[in-house]
């Protein structure tokens, strides 16, 4: 336990140093870097937000596995990178890890008839130990001086453009591909049926489809996306950490809800874009809190509180809107 605490403290200090370094960049007045940072982080976390969107909004299966599958993706990716595996193979394994953890959650929910929240918490808790094992029995694995997908990109574009810009373009492309596949999937017969599951489970059963299998597929895909997001974050930040996932689900949910304020639609392509823009806006709010929060005596430690309040604010606004809507219909 002492050793583990020590490790966690050590990684916190690494993270603090990282944040400080960023703060210095901002401090020099280079706003461009900040905007790039927000966009890149918003896009990477956006992949996770798509996963949260699938479980919370499409499947109506509130899934907390995310807090474990996000660092799982990061841990698998980091470990395989340091062991010198092919980078795309590493990404594939990380994705599969997320898929399996989602399937485990769905299985616990299906077979033991426990609520999805409890099933998710169970998997998430078990994943904490698994993640430490995946990191090689430690809480943190730095990727300094390692060859990652991102360093490959920056070497490839060296001399053509700034590294930060190259990485931004790379993530725009990655997210475009993922959103494309996401939209395509939800247009298939299987995807449509998944959409119906969250709306009306009885209808799915009446159509002769086993809802248990659908839940396994849906929650599996959602967590696969989350793990991909974790794998990229590890490379972007330069380390994988067992506590990377702490509160990820809440920030994902906040992003989904922020997005819902911006676009109202029933088209899946717009819904996906909405989740992404929610993620970028959320990151923007977090950046603002981190760098300008000190004007109102706020520290980075207050960000979780802000995230929670954001969600509560969204819930309250939605409720007020609904009441207004009802009054409007009645009058």
């Amino acid at each position: 336990m002492v050793v583990k605490d020590g490790l966690i403290r050590a990684n916190r200090s690494i993270r603090a140093a990282f944040v400080q370094q960023r703060a210095q960049i901002i401090g020099t007045g280079q706003d461009l870097y900040m905007i790039e940072g927000i966009l890149v982080e918003g896009l990477i976390y956006g992949i996770m937000v798509l996963g949260v969107f699938i479980t919370f909004r499409i499947l109506n299966f509130p899934d907390l596995t995310v807090d474990g599958s996000f660092p799982l993706g990061a841990a698998i990716m980091a470990t395989l990178i340091t062991r010198g595996y092919n980078l795309w193979f590493a990404l594939l394994v990380a994705t599969a890890g997320g898929l399996v953890s989602g399937i485990v959650t769905a299985l616990i929910h299906n077979k033991l008839k426990v609520p999805s929240l409890l099933a998710g918490i169970l998997t998430m808790t078990m994943l904490y130990s698994i993640n430490i094992r995946a990191l090689g029995n430690r809480a943190n694995l730095p990727l300094l001086k390692q060859d990652t997908i991102l360093t490959r990109i920056t070497t490839m574009t060296e001399g053509l453009m700034r590294d930060e810009f190259a990485i931004l373009i790379f993530f725009v492309l990655v997210v475009l591909v993922i959103v494309g596949l996401f939209v395509l999937f939800f247009h298939t017969d299987l995807g449509l049926t998944l959409g119906a599951l969250g709306n009306n489970e009885q209808m799915v059963i009446t159509q002769g489809v086993n809802p248990e299998i659908l839940k396994m597929i849906g929650v599996g895909i959602a967590n696969a996306l989350v793990a991909i997001s974790g794998a990229f974050i590890a490379q972007y930040q330069g380390f994988a950490d067992v506590s990377l996932g702490q509160g990820i689900i809440i920030s994902g949910l906040a992003s989904v809800m922020i997005g819902e304020f911006m676009i109202k639609s029933n088209r899946i392509s717009l819904l996906a874009l909405r989740a992404l823009s929610g993620s970028i806006l959320f990151k923007g709010i977090m950046y603002a809190g981190r760098y300008y929060g000190y004007y109102i005596n706020m520290t980075p430690n207050d960000l979780k509180l802000i995230t929670g309040l954001l969600i509560i604010l969204s819930l309250v606004t939605t409720k007020i809107n609904r009441i207004k809507m009802k009054k409007w219909i009645k009058s």
């Binding site: 298939t188 299987l190 959409g195 799915v204 002769g208 489809v209």
Partner: peptide, 18 residues
């Protein structure tokens, strides 16, 4: 979308039939 889901009973694959 509703009609597509109900068009055919049984497990749905990755085909885009709509």
């Amino acid at each position: 979308d509703n009609m597509m889901i109900c068009y055919k009973k049984g497990f749905k694959g990755l085909r885009i039939s709509l």
